[in-house]
């Protein structure tokens, strides 16, 4: 399906770009009729995905993060966040709540947040080949739709 509108951008995997990335996606998503909660959900989910790229995909290097987003039929926002980093050997395990391969203050809830705060999450990954996370958010405020 063709998007009503879409954008793509490439950022470096520097933590200072986490805020930048979620602000850009939120500004783009604001073209739809979404409410404040939906906008916050999108910002939170994007922040998690971009953080994963920075922390996990490129742990010791600065790599590229590819972000694309599209608006479909005025109410569906699809966001894809891709890296060419180390990849995930066991995606199922990585998606388990509270699982983290790091320690410290990482809560292990990145994928749980993405899953709860969007309507659809798919993760494709292979070791050495990077990871691609696609999320979809359905905007409830569209005409004729009651949440």
């Amino acid at each position: 399906m063709k998007a009503d509108n879409e954008f793509r951008m490439v950022i470096e995997s520097r933590s200072v770009n986490e805020g930048f990335a979620r602000a850009v996606v939120a500004a783009f998503a604001s073209q739809t009729d979404l409410n404040i909660e939906e906008l916050s959900d999108i910002k939170t989910a994007v922040s998690e995905a971009v953080t994963n790229c920075i922390v996990h995909a490129y742990p010791d290097t600065v790599g590229k993060i590819y972000i694309t987003a599209g608006i479909y039929s005025g109410f569906r926002i699809r966001i894809k966040i891709r890296d060419c980093g180390c990849g995930i050997a066991d995606v199922k395990k990585a998606r388990e709540p509270l699982y983290t391969s790091l320690g410290g203050d990482r809560a292990g809830l990145g994928f749980s947040v993405m899953e709860s705060f969007t309507d659809k999450l798919s993760v494709r990954s292979a070791p050495g080949k990077g990871t691609s996370v696609t999320m979809e958010k359905i905007i409830a405020g569209r005409p004729g739709h009651e949440k």
């Binding site: 805020g19 410290g104 203050d105 809560a107």
Partner: peptide, 13 residues
């Protein structure tokens, strides 16, 4: 103004 799961880690820690 905004919080992601890093805030959970901060609180848990």
């Amino acid at each position: 103004t905004f919080m992601d799961s890093s805030g959970i880690g901060l609180v848990m820690g």
